[in-house]
Each structure stands twice: as C-alpha cells, then as structure tokens.
Amino acid sequence: MSGGVPRPGLAAHARRARQTRQCIAMALALTGALAPPVAAQWLTVPNPSTPRAADGTPNLTAPAPRTPDGKSDFSGIWIRPRGVPPGTGGRDGIAAGVDVLFQPWAEALYKTRAENNSKGTPSERCLPHGITKAVSVPEPFKIVQTPDLIVILLEEFNHHRQVFMDGRPAPARRAPTYFGFSRGSWDGDTLVVETTGFRDEQWLDFRGHPASEALRLTERYQRRDFGHLEVQFTIDDPKAYVHPWNVTMTFDLLPDTELLEHFCENERDTTLNLLIGK
C-alpha cells in the first residue's frame, strides 16, 4: 500500500474510478434493471449468480453459496469494510485489541519499525506483503475456489496465492517464501488453511509486527452470508511471540465488479516516497 499517496502511473485513473463504483451500481439498480454490460474498466460486470432483491440490488444477506459438492463457496471479490483504517496502520496494526506477548528482540524491532514510520517494509521495494498484510490494504482480492485448489488473486501488486486442497503434504525441501506453502482442509463449513515455509523477517502488518521463519499461520474462513466473510488468523511463532495470538478480519463482498490492474510501478508507487516527501 502506498499510504494513500496519489499514484501516478496506470493504476491512478482506474483507482479514482473505482471510488464511484458503488454509486454506479446503485444507480443502475434503481433503474430497475442492470444497464447493458458495457462499462469502463470493467467496474460493473453483472454476475448472473448474484442473488438480488426485487429492485435488482445484490442481496448481501442472502445465504452463503455452496459448491456442487456442498462446501461453502468463498469465491468472490472481497474488500475491507468501509471505515476500517486502511492498512491497519493504527497504533497497534492488526493487533488492535489483542494481547500480544513479544519475545524481547521482536518487541524492540516492532518499536523501531513503528518509530520509523514503517521504513524498510518490503513492499516499499515492490516485494510481496505476505498473507496478513496483503489483505489489510484497501485494495480488494478475489477468491476462486475449485475442489483441489483455491486461488487468491491480490489486486495490489497483481500477486497470487495458492491454497492446495488435495491433501498433499508440504514439500520436504523448499526455499522460504513471502507467502509460504498453504494447505487447506474443511472443518464443517469453515475452511482451515495452514501455512508454513515463510521467509524470515516477515512484516505481519504495516505497523511492523515481526515474524520469523518459524511462523505457522492458520487461517479460518467463514462466509457468514452472501456478502460477508470473516477470517481468523492465528499467529504461532514461538521465536517472535511467547504464545500464539489471534486476529479476526472481516471482509465485504464487492458484487458485480472486477479486479483492477495494479502493478507496483517503481519507486513512485511505494511508501518510501511518502516518507521522504516526494
């Protein structure tokens, strides 16, 4: 995330246009029918499977959809609800309201990062955010669910994650990565994702909560209804924290739209520019 700095580059126009997305959808709905499917930037892409009220507006409290084999279907474009501070850059980052017990080195590092306004965060250089940080940005992400694989497409930086649903074990030898290796399973209607294999020196959020290569991240996805998703993250990293801690994030569905293109475009597009006043 660029910290709200206006972005020159290809994404800027599209991003401002997205801010009128909901107004467009509302106006279209009020006409009693969706307009013919031509729209700039694919801001409005009517989806025939969206449940609708009588006036055509998406029914966000309709029951959560299911796949043909009866599983809860998480497919859709999801975004942090309005009013949530972008980037969870508030004083406590993603740990707002959560009791976090740091190991001493981790606490010192966290304080340094916070005091320096998150200077040095990998995304300054267009490197990936990592799992929790990536979904804390204002930009949406798309989940595409198939029986053997769930794909998460992150609008910011045009990055992807894969969650393997076919029961394969984590590879024995694998170089550590920003997004780790994710395996998913079902606990009733809850999707449980376990990820290991992270690079060292992770940033869990923009505030700078550290994590080490020992991190085992568990995500529990529950789709409350058509329009609402809740994900509980469990951060289990004994090198950085004395005990595991949980964070819950909620997401709203963005119906009838599409991801915008957003590649990280050189140093103008990164938080560092904000810091040095470019």
Binding site: P122, E124, R125, C126, L127, P128, Q162, P171, R174, A175, T177, Y178, F179, C264, N266, E267, T270, L272, N273, I276, K278
Partner: peptide, 15 residues
C-alpha cells in the same frame, strides 16, 4: 509446483 520469484526495486536514496 510453482515457486515464488520476486523482483525488488532499488529504493530511492534520501535527498
């Protein structure tokens, strides 16, 4: 399976 290849830009120097 796909690995993860990342590309990092050189941060702008201060000043």
């Amino acid at each position: 399976e796909l690995g993860e290849d990342v590309c990092a830009i050189q941060p702008a120097a201060a000043g």
